[in-house]
Design a protein around this nucleic acid. Structure first.
Lengths: 226, 226
DNA sequence: CGTCAAGACGGTACTCAGTACCATTCCGGG
DNA sequence: CCCGGAATGGTACTGAGTACCGTCTTGACG
């Protein structure tokens, strides 16, 4: 009976020690020792101490990038929503491992910062994808892309964190609902849905209730003639 | 003629060396030496090498927190928008220093990550403030708070980065416009504007154009009876 | 003017992450 | 059996960050 592969042994040892003594109190030597390997071997499998906890962020980012590049969804926002659902599913598959990681990142600010930086890379990818997709180089379009990306990521994080905290029994359904919420914030423009400009137009609002705030959105809807 | 204060000398030396050799190629010893100070003294003024570049993020965060706590704006989102404008103005006051920092963070990923982590702290603060302000513990409200915070921060970052890149001549006006855009995404609810529930109701949409996506928003508007 | 205490400063020594490099061992094909 | 490459372990180094201690300055007070 041979031992499990080195990479797995290292990860197991690391998580066990982090749970026992805490992240900062655990040295790379400790991890290597428990995994019964040399210190150099640790750094062959993981570039840093942090990477034991976030092993495949790079791989997942590449996967999402490919997904977007081969996407054929109706709108950029829908494509991105679909892509981000993949990320959530990835975490769900990790199961308990994801929750252990969450407990660690909740306690250790250095790890939380790293996690946040990773998420920002997704957001950047989404922003660039949406901006490219819109093909509109104006400042307004650029801001819009930025907002869309931020919303998708925020919605994802919201659902993910709920699940990680054990507050969600059906995160897949929740993320779908959250994405619908986001989609609703950014109604598709007529040019995006194939220049059918002749549908019935109806407008709904309550007078006397921050009509001012609603105006830009209504204006956008109304001005979109063929 | 005495020299400038130690803290200033250290910062000047650090930025000069970062420009000359790059961030990673500069050691703390180098900085201390150029500032004509001992190495220990460097760490008395800055907790880490990175902190020379981001000296007052903590202070600014506290300032924003106070601002929010003493705020009396009409809605949570407006209060947060006002607060975030303060952050932008802070950067504008820094002037060229902010641009030098931006050039550094653009090149050195470790610094970019740190910057992103700081921004995330603002976003968290905003999210908690909005959630508290709404006082609505439901999941939908929680998501809404998350989205609002994300939008405000994204809009701010968008304008700030444009200015840092020299693409904006009037960032103050741009951030106001961007915040209007964000406000427009989140129309105030009736309960927020004083329980006037008896206004005229009108509804507008284009059939055949992602009506599905618009539904949640419309439903929300319609269901808000007294 | 002398004294004393507090703070600023410099220096030393340490831990630990991460890198570079080299020697050894293991293993499969020839 | 032999050879070559891959995996491994060990050693030595750099540099960030921490702890601690001795020294020097400074200013208040008698």
């Amino acid at each position: 009976m041979s031992k499990p592969p080195v990479r797995t042994r290292l990860a197991d040892a690391a998580f066990a020690l982090f749970d026992e003594r805490g992240y900062e109190q655990t040295t790379v030597d400790d991890i290597a020792e428990r995994a019964e390997v040399g210190r150099s071997t640790f750094f062959r499998y993981y570039r840093s101490k942090e990477e034991v906890i976030f092993p495949d962020h790079d791989r997942l980012l590449d996967l999402i990038r490919d997904r977007l590049n081969t996407s054929s969804s109706g709108t950029a926002l829908v494509a991105v929503s679909d892509a981000v659902r993949l990320v959530l599913l990835h975490y769900l598959e990790e199961g308990d491992l994801a929750r252990r990681r969450y407990r660690l990142t909740s306690k250790v600010s250095a790890l939380r910062d790293r996690e946040i930086a990773s998420v920002a890379r997704y957001q950047r990818l989404f922003r660039e994808f949406i901006a490219d997709w819109m093909g509109d180089p104006t400042e307004a379009a650029s801001l819009r892309a930025e907002l869309m990306a931020a919303n998708v990521v925020a919605a994802h994080n919201h659902v993910l964190r709920r699940w990680l905290r054990g507050e969600s029994s059906d995160p897949a359904a929740e993320v779908d609902e959250a994405m619908r919420e986001v989609l609703a914030l950014f109604p598709a423009r007529s040019s995006e849905s194939g220049s059918l400009g002749d549908g019935t137009t109806v407008v709904a609002f309550r007078t006397g209730q921050d009509l001012e705030a609603l105006l830009p959105q209504l204006r956008r809807l109304v001005e979109e003639g063929p």
